[in-house]
Design a protein around this nucleic acid. Structure first.
Lengths: 247, 247
DNA sequence: TGCTCAAAGTTGTCTAGTCCAATTCGAGAC
DNA sequence: GTCTCGAATTGGACTAGACAACTTTGAGCA
């Protein structure tokens, strides 16, 4: 085995990354839906083990470049979908972009605030709160799992209303006269738990874009605390920013 | 080993996830810097293979819960750092939060615009552009790798100025009278290439938060196109949004 | 022609192990 | 006491293979 002289201390490329680059070259010009060679074929073609091939494939699946179908094969993926990141309601946000969206209410129960939720909603620990879990779909494909927490004392009878109207922001405005005027959004990477993976139709451990929204009314009172687990392999978020303050 | 009866059809939990939950329980109450059991110890304690243990560990490292040090051990990680996501300059952004920041200029060269860059900068393919690559550090620890693309014709002599002053926004304002007033930000997940991994001090394939910024001047002319690869294991981004338009 | 079902092919999960690379630490030399 | 160096320990990369779960296909049958 020939070793490159004066190897950079930097960037020692693992073998799986060579496989990954090979696959990227291969799929660069292929249309979505094209079948790529099977794992065992790649194994012999590239003189490596299946574990190494699978590591490269998994990374490309996580990046939204490939899709694996159990028992069938591995295919070139559709390009990522660009999704607006605004503080507007989910339903309108999407229909404006030409997508058909829907929501499945997974859970809507009363529970007691733990330390984190109590602090964010301005309640004491153990106070009664709603826990709402919804699945967001775009063109009938799961996009995100969303959990919301709200004060039960502040919004009595919320759950039956929500089951009727389905739009949470609509219910808050019409039934309680509450509108969020400010919000703190947090963004981080995460990985899918088995439950999230199952709901989103991805593998456990898949990359997730985790968005948090902590919204407040005109008096600065917290309204809700939401966390949304978005498929990291299918969505790119976009926000338009205007520079009021700029240096 | 006891197996739970009547397994749910949904959410079939892989064995590595059991290991992961075991580790999460273990580290929940431990302070950052605490040593966790070695991979080989976990292997025998949990009756599994080292591959399975390593998968659980890798996921926890990617989530910023653990840190691995080659030859030394695996440790409980520091909590993530919350970082403001604003359109202001990097240097001020941070010192306001009490962090000491610095930038290392990795590359600053002239090159020719490919299709993507040309479209974004409003140039023809092959037009002369600057390629600027910088490493952003917080308290002397790498935070992000940042690449910028600008029109060379529009900002003649930019590179020597940049080497003197180091703040790109400062140079653009003082030397060229240009200020970004609007920008389109994109956010997505990615995984670290060997080069990025090396610069950021993480493993190849680690989760990355990839931010893009496409900024425009007061006339709507594109100024620059920047992409920043942030360590996904160490940073949570936060943005305050005011609802001018709200429904 | 249309249906059934078994076989083949593909990805998913997990195991057991080898060898390498970096760190740590103590015995021994000075 | 201090330093050096090698052994032990730890994480990193990779291999070869077993078996399970799911899909596809086509031979055989009605």
């Amino acid at each position: 085995m020939v070793v490159v002289a004066s190897e950079r201390a930097a960037s020692r490329e693992p073998k799986y990354y060579l496989v990954k680059r090979h696959l990227l070259d291969l799929i660069a010009a292929l249309p979505p839906g094209t079948l790529v060679p099977t794992e065992r074929v790649l194994t012999v073609e590239l003189g490596t083990s299946r574990t190494t091939v699978r590591r490269a494939l998994s990374e490309l699946v996580g990046e939204g470049r490939l899709v694996r179908r159990h028992g069938s094969g591995t295919y070139v993926a559709e390009p990522k979908i660009t999704w607006p990141l605004q503080m507007t309601s989910f339903t309108e946000q999407a229909s404006a972009s030409g997508y058909s969206t829907s929501t499945r209410l997974l859970e809507a129960t009363r529970t007691r605030a733990d330390e984190g939720i109590a602090a964010r909603l301005g309640l004491r620990v153990g106070a009664s709160t709603y826990f709402i879990e919804r699945l967001r779909l775009v063109d009938d494909t799961p996009m995100a799992v969303e959990t919301s927490h709200l004060s039960a004392a502040r919004f009595p009878g919320l759950i039956p209303e929500l089951r009727k109207k389905s739009s949470l922001y609509g219910v808050l405005a019409e039934n309680y006269g509450v509108q969020p005027v400010e919000a703190e959004e947090t963004i981080e990477t995460a990985s899918a738990s088995p439950r999230e993976a199952d709901l989103l139709g991805v593998d456990t451990g898949s990359p997730i874009l985790l968005l948090g929204r902590h919204s407040f009314d005109v008096d600065g009172q917290p309204i809700e605390y939401v966390r949304s687990w978005y498929r990291g392999d299918r969505y790119t978020f976009v926000a338009r920013l205007s520079a009021h303050r700029q240096e």
